[in-house]
Each structure stands twice: as C-alpha cells, then as structure tokens.
Amino acid sequence: MPETAASAPQAQPFRASIMQIEPQWIDYNGHLNMAYYNVMFDRAIDQLWAELGIGPTYMKERHGSTFTAECHVRYLREIHLGDPVQILVWLLEADDKRLHTFEEMRHASEGWLSATSENMSLHMDMNSRKVAPFPPDISERIAAVTKAHSAVSRPEGIGRNVAMPSKR
C-alpha cells in the first residue's frame, strides 16, 4: 500500500483489509486469544497510518512514529478460526501530538461485532524518543480525516471505562 495521502477523505470509517485468523492464535478455549485481538487492531491502525503518511516510510525517512499510550479493548463476541475479520477505524479527535481512535472488529461476511478498541496514540520524534508535534503536512491530513469521520455517527462504546456494575 503506498504511503501517501488518499484523495479527499470520505465521511465513513476507514475500512482495513479483510484479515484471517491464524491457527496459532486460537487458545485452549477454542477462540481467538485476547492478545491477538490487539495484533489485528494494530494491523488495521498500521493501514490507516500508511494512508495518513505516518507509517514505516515516515519513520524511516522523517524519523517520526506513533506509540500507543492507552488502549481499552472490549471483547463482545467470540471469533474463531476460519472467521474472516474486518476492522473499521474512526479517527475521533487529534491535536498537535495525539490521535484518539476507535476501532470495531466485525465478522467480514456476516457483519456482527466481535470487539472494540479505543486508543490514544502519541506522535514521537524517534531521534529524541520524545513526544513531538506532527509536521504541518501530516497535521493537515489528520485534520481532514478527523473532519470526515466526525460526519459519521459515533459507534456505541466510545469513552467507556472499566468498572463493576453499580448496585442500585
């Protein structure tokens, strides 16, 4: 996938390529092990980052990258070997150094929701390994995608926290 900005961003979440579950990712419960949900979410984010121009080429040529600062995954329905998976990504908010994303993992042919992941990523200057502002051209791309994604209805689950159910 070329690491260039696509034409005008669409008012829809980013759709990652359809992925397959790898056999070694299935745990003793017979479903996708929780660690590999993160692998698949990360692969989808890598695809979006490449579209934004902040993927591996950016790191190599411009010495910038992103690090995940926070992640909240919800496991909603089991995924099994043989289930095709597609991840949708919303770029919810961004500032000069951070990206707030929300991802849905869906069964690619049946459409049901398996898991969600909400993340905060930090832009890093890889020479200093410190948080740094995005370059202006990248900020413009991010702003355009964030604006396009803001026109789409927000999925359920954004901003959830981990807590015991309240007793009433």
Rank of each mutant, 00 (worst) to 15 (best):
P9I: 03
G55Y: 03
F14L: 03
H100Q: 10
S17V: 02
V85Q: 04
G53Q: 07
L113P: 06
C71W: 06
T101G: 03
D83Q: 07
F41W: 05
M1L: 12
M1W: 10
S153T: 15
A6E: 10
V131N: 01
G53N: 08
L99P: 06
F134G: 09
A94E: 09
R141T: 13
G157A: 05
A163H: 12
A115T: 06
R74D: 12
G55R: 02
I79E: 01
A8M: 04
H149T: 03
E140G: 10
Y58Q: 12
K60R: 15
S17T: 14
D125A: 06
I87M: 01
V73Q: 08
A6T: 09
W112N: 13
V89Y: 02
R160V: 05
A6F: 04
T68E: 11
H123W: 08
D137L: 10
H63T: 05
P155D: 08
P23E: 09
M19I: 08
R62D: 08
R160P: 00
Y28R: 09
T68N: 13
V131H: 01
M34N: 15
V145K: 11
N127C: 00
A69G: 15
S7G: 11
Q24W: 11
E78D: 13
A108Y: 04
M40H: 13
S128C: 00
M120Q: 07
P155V: 05
V152G: 00
V162L: 13
E22M: 14
N127K: 11
K167Y: 11
I45K: 00
R43F: 09
A143M: 07
S150F: 00
F67P: 04
H72F: 10
Q20G: 09
